[in-house]
Design a protein around this nucleic acid. Structure first.
Lengths: 269, 269
DNA sequence: TTGCTCCTCACGTCACGTGAGGTGGC
DNA sequence: TTGCTCCTCACGTCACGTGAGGTGGC
């Protein structure tokens, strides 16, 4: 006869679990001391404990186990129980598998962004910007409406998207409410115009650029730097200016705005 | 603005769940009527609801989701969360898989027993019993000690077991306490004698047999029939008699004793 | 005496579900 | 008025875990 502690070590079930199984009547001690209330278990109960553990591993409920171990379930009924449980397990497996693979996708895309934004130069740069095919939605409104514009274009352009989201600002000044904005994505091939979404080639050329780190509210600081530089160099800036969102709120997680990365590009003559 | 019921239809989350997510602060209504307490949701919250659903599908806890959606987790931290969750999911999958395959094994073995016991003849039969290689443990004791004897032999003979458990009764009379019993299994090859477990060839021969259906306590009825028949036929019975357990308490489930099937075999001259 | 094991009882966990009892708008 | 939707509050679920407060044997 083993005390509950010894039996716990043998059966690899916690003392609490053993007491619970006693309460539930699926693993009753072989002897209980009337005075102390101590539970004692025989060697033969080890086997029963192992069977219960096995069934619990198979996700059977305590009630299910009680019924199955009661000894008065017919074979056919027992088979039904087992097959039902097998189905449940199979469902669980396939669910977990799809969840795992979409999680994998998300992890990959975050890693990709991390890789791409690892070796960024935060200085003002003069560089050549390439031509791109651009699918965009142009509207007049507030700056914070670009989010829904991206969604619109995203739905249409879908799998042809070939780079980071970007916006074109056609105004030469800052406008609170009625800004002339085009928001969209570079795409791998020209798409048919559709519900306000237009495709065109954005000509590249010589540009001055800077990568802004931080929330969008502080973008003005980087604009200031950039235009001061352009003025010093006596360049002439061309409209529209562009913002490329290297790292932003993203599709799923908002992220920390302090870590947002936005490249401002101004074409020059 | 949608009422909670409308939003429930759109988001495919129950009203109760939406109220709970409100309480937990992970999906707060966009407007709450002060008088009625009615919750109202905007279109933009649909997306958030979908993200939460996705994360719940991936088995994230409400607290985990709250943290991840708070917007102030760094990328590295976020990646850690996601990878941790991925590990959890992978563990869950592999656990469920092993559970499912052992369940499959059990189902198969029960089906096998069902098949084998489907077309059984319950009449007294005269038939030829074949020679078998038998690994057994012989002891003097009570009938209900055969269980542990089977276990002993089972552990040694393991994968060489090639048929149903059987016992040999060497006494010519019924003994309550000091019965001379050998319990074991037919095996596919002769094993070395070891800790009281002995291997030998059980010679077959002409026999009278009957299949007993029901608990072991009622076996005496079938014995009576069998020996009455032997007497009538003027056969001479040979010792030991055998019991072959076609269907019994089994390795895992006790089953219903009313359905136990035991073949009694008595060799005759 | 001390330390260890055992006991019971009540409450906590997690993500909701289930009602009871009541209100408000069409 | 009726039927429907919404509300809050309290309690239930499932398989234990956590701790408080206490006992008994070495």
């Amino acid at each position: 006869m083993f005390t509950i502690g010894e039996f716990s070590l043998i059966s690899r079930l916690t003392v609490k679990t053993l007491r619970y199984y006693h309460d539930e009547g699926i693993l009753v001690p072989d002897y209980i001391d009337d005075d102390s209330g101590y539970r004692y278990y025989r060697q033969t109960s080890v086997e029963r404990a192992m069977i219960i553990t096995m069934l619990r591993d198979m996700d059977f409920s305590i009630n299910g186990i009680r019924e199955m171990l009661s000894g008065y379930t017919e074979d056919t009924e027992l088979l039904e129980h087992l097959e039902k449980q097998q189905h449940k397990l199979k469902d669980k497996i396939s669910q977990a598998k799809t969840a795992e693979s979409s999680l994998e996708e998300i992890i990959k895309s975050i890693r990709r962004i991390k890789m791409n934004t690892k070796h960024i130069n935060y200085e003002i740069q003069e560089k050549q910007v390439e031509d791109i095919i651009f699918a965009g939605f142009r509207f007049k409104g507030k700056y914070d409406e670009v989010g829904s514009a991206f969604k619109k274009v995203g739905r249409k352009a879908g799998r042809f998207i070939s780079g980071n989201a970007l916006t074109l600002y056609y105004d030469c000044e800052y406008k609170e409410n009625d800004a002339d904005i085009e928001a969209g994505f570079p795409v791998s091939k020209s798409l048919k115009a559709n519900s306000g979404i237009d495709c065109k080639i954005l000509k590249g050329g010589k540009s001055v650029t800077i990568v802004h780190k931080g929330p969008y509210e502080s973008l003005n600081k980087s604009y200031e730097k950039l235009f001061t530089f352009i003025e010093q160099k006596k360049y002439k800036s061309l409209s529209p200016s562009r913002e490329v969102y290297l790292k932003g709120p993203g599709m799923i997680f908002k992220g920390n705005p302090e870590n947002y990365l936005t490249e401002i590009q101004v074409l020059i003559q």
